[in-house]
């Protein structure tokens, strides 16, 4: 590997955390010294590694979460705004909560159409009942926490769901 600044072989490898982003540096002895990275000459490679690991674990547990299906990391989503697979909605459900509520004017539940192929009519009735009881539980929670705006929205969603004619 060549030095980032000149063409000599790089012998010093550093990971810097700047503004929450990790930055890899590969430098030759001379460039590293010029850039001031060698002032702490007492710092051995091992110490550096420990520093690096500390910085890593310093990141919250959330950022380290990885989807077993697609390998998506929460940190990656934060950078691109795009998820990796349908399962990510379960894996990152805690973190996504705020993101979704923000993007969707506080809405938390789907009330529109359901796919034709995946849901048989009996299932859809069952699903709707499960959905209704979940919404009603959320409503009780919201009222307990005096989140009236959320409660009003949940009430609307319950009303909408109850208004859907049963499928045959």
């Amino acid at each position: 590997m060549k030095c980032d600044r000149c063409n000599k072989p790089a012998t010093i490898h550093l990971t810097e955390i700047r503004n929450g982003k990790s930055l890899e540096l590969h430098l030759c002895q001379q460039c590293a010294a010029e850039a001031g990275y060698l002032q702490q000459t007492h710092l051995s490679m091992n110490d550096m590694l420990t520093e690096f690991v500390k910085a890593k674990t310093g990141m919250s547990q959330r950022d380290a979460l990885v989807c077993p299906d697609c390998g998506m990391k929460w940190q990656e989503f934060k950078e691109t705004g795009l998820l990796g697979c349908p399962k990510d909605y379960e894996i990152f459900s805690d973190q996504l909560r705020g993101v979704i509520e923000n993007a969707q004017r506080g809405a938390t539940h789907h009330t529109g159409k359901t796919p034709t192929a995946t849901v048989a009519p009996e299932d859809s009735v069952k699903l709707r009942q499960a959905e209704l009881s979940r919404l009603k539980k959320d409503l009780t929670d919201a009222l307990e926490h005096e989140s009236y705006e959320v409660a009003a929205m949940l009430r609307d969603q319950i009303k909408a769901l109850e208004a859907v004619p049963p499928t045959h």
């Binding site: 795009l82 969707q104 938390t108 539940h109 789907h110 796919p115």
Partner: peptide, 19 residues
């Protein structure tokens, strides 16, 4: 078979299209 959850509806790459 579409990616769909009863809670979030149609699942999309970007959460801004969800539901």
């Amino acid at each position: 078979r579409y990616a769909f959850s009863d809670r979030f509806g149609f699942l999309t790459a970007c959460p801004t299209n969800l539901g």
